[in-house]
């Protein structure tokens, strides 16, 4: 399983990672090696086997849909962690 430099670049773009040429080269080889190892899963017969995402048998854990007040101090310190804050709001670049 050999990933080309273009494929690695495409994955990096999907993952929103700016990578240097050196990184693209290095990760390309390393990811190919890991994927090569993972290929062994194909030899397992999984016909009719359900996929597992949850192991304790819980299903639909419901809660009331209610507004919970968040401590003001905690709320403000959370907002103030943003790199750009204006009037208690997080500032972002235009998206449209």
């Amino acid at each position: 399983m050999e990933l080309s430099k273009e494929q690695i670049q495409h994955i990096a773009t999907l993952a929103r990672l700016e990578l240097t040429d050196e990184e693209l080269e290095k990760y390309g080889g390393q990811l190919s090696a890991v994927l090569g190892y993972i290929e062994q899963l194909q030899e397992v017969d999984t016909d009719g086997i359900e996929p597992t995402a949850q192991v304790t048998g819980l299903e639909n854990s419901w809660r009331e849909d209610v507004v919970r007040v968040w401590d003001d101090g905690e709320r403000l310190s959370a907002i103030n962690l943003a790199p750009e804050v204006d009037d208690g709001q997080v500032k972002v670049r235009r998206v449209l």
């Binding site: 994955i11 990096a12 990672l17 990811l31 890991v34």
Partner: peptide, 22 residues
């Protein structure tokens, strides 16, 4: 997004993010 994540994450985090994205 790309610059913050590219400079902020270390090599193993980047490898795993790419493996998962793939």
């Amino acid at each position: 997004y790309k610059n913050s994540r590219g400079k902020g994450f270390g090599p193993e985090a980047k490898r795993r993010i790419m493996l998962g994205t793939y």
